[in-house]
């Protein structure tokens, strides 16, 4: 088996744009008989996806439950609470890789544009900083 544990960062707020990444992660999970953990980052303040961290966690775990149906090991969810998600997202995801002991990250990212020279996309940042494989889905 090439991969034992796949981590899939989920942006609950933009779940509509994540279909392809989710499909990819599910397919790879089945393919390798791996475990799947979906990871979400939220702030302590009310946001679009949830009113508070507890609600966010509940939604994420409900999503994991559904994605896990039909997977060999089901799917886990893990919520991280950040003071300032915009600034901390990349660092938290990098820590999460170690935390959940993943050996492959599958994540959605937009198509690079000129501005990414100044602000790299989160997927791009992960790929260049993580010490495991990162599958950036565009």
């Amino acid at each position: 088996m090439w991969y034992k544990h796949i981590m899939l960062p989920i942006d609950l707020e933009h779940a509509d744009r994540m279909g392809k990444a989710i499909e990819t992660a599910l397919a790879l999970t089945v393919q390798f008989g791996a475990k799947l953990t979906i990871v979400g980052v939220t702030s302590e303040l009310p946001g679009v996806s949830a009113h508070n961290p507890a609600e966010f966690e509940e939604k994420l775990s409900a999503l994991a439950q559904r994605l896990g149906e039909g997977l060999p090991h089901g799917a886990q969810s893990k919520t991280y609470v950040a003071h300032d998600p915009t600034a901390q997202l990349d660092a938290i995801l990098l820590d999460a890789v170690k935390d959940v002991e993943a050996d492959l990250v599958v994540m959605a990212s937009h198509i690079p544009n000129a501005l990414n020279a100044i602000w790299p996309s989160h997927g791009g940042k992960m790929a260049s900083h993580a010490d495991i494989s990162v599958f950036v889905v565009r």
């Binding site: 509509d16 989710i22 009113h51 961290p53 507890a54 609600e55 939604k59």
Partner: peptide, 23 residues
Amino acid sequence: NPSTEADVDLTVQTEVVAIPAPE
């Protein structure tokens, strides 16, 4: 076909109606 929309149901949260209290 990679160009078709993914068929995963992305409507997060269906049964959870009441918002859980913060902590």
